[in-house]
């Protein structure tokens, strides 16, 4: 059982890492603010979600598992809002770099 759970963790966290890597590359390589945001938020949110899902089996208790999920939810909320704000600012300033 625990081997199976460890396997889930390894697979999920590794998958999350891939998304993080992709997001970071996108952030550095994409040409303008909006596409960078696109790369960042999508990849980051899914990446973090996968990491959290991967870690939940390792949590000592139900409470710790719920805490992990809360972290993900808060990050989702914050990053969604911040992306909105950044995108709006970018559009206002006509930023195309």
């Amino acid at each position: 059982m625990s081997v199976l759970l460890d396997l889930v963790t390894i697979v999920m966290v590794s998958a999350g890492m891939v998304f993080f890597l992709a997001g970071t590359v996108g952030l550095l390589r994409f040409p303008d603010t909006l596409t960078r945001l696109h790369a960042l938020t999508k990849a980051d949110n899914i990446g973090l979600g996968l990491v959290v899902i991967g870690l939940v089996p390792q949590a000592g208790s139900l409470r710790d598992g719920l805490k992990l999920l809360c972290v993900w939810l808060l990050v989702l909320l914050a990053s969604a809002t911040v992306s909105q704000l950044v995108a709006q600012a970018a559009r206002r300033e006509g930023d195309s770099s």
Binding site: L74, L77, A78, A80, T81, Q84, L85, Q88
Partner: peptide
């Protein structure tokens, strides 16, 4: 201070109690 903005207002309303 940001301009009146739906997203930020939403965040403030949801996050503040938490």
């Amino acid at each position: 201070r940001a301009e009146p903005d739906a997203a930020l207002e939403f965040l403030a309303r949801v996050l503040t109690p938490v």
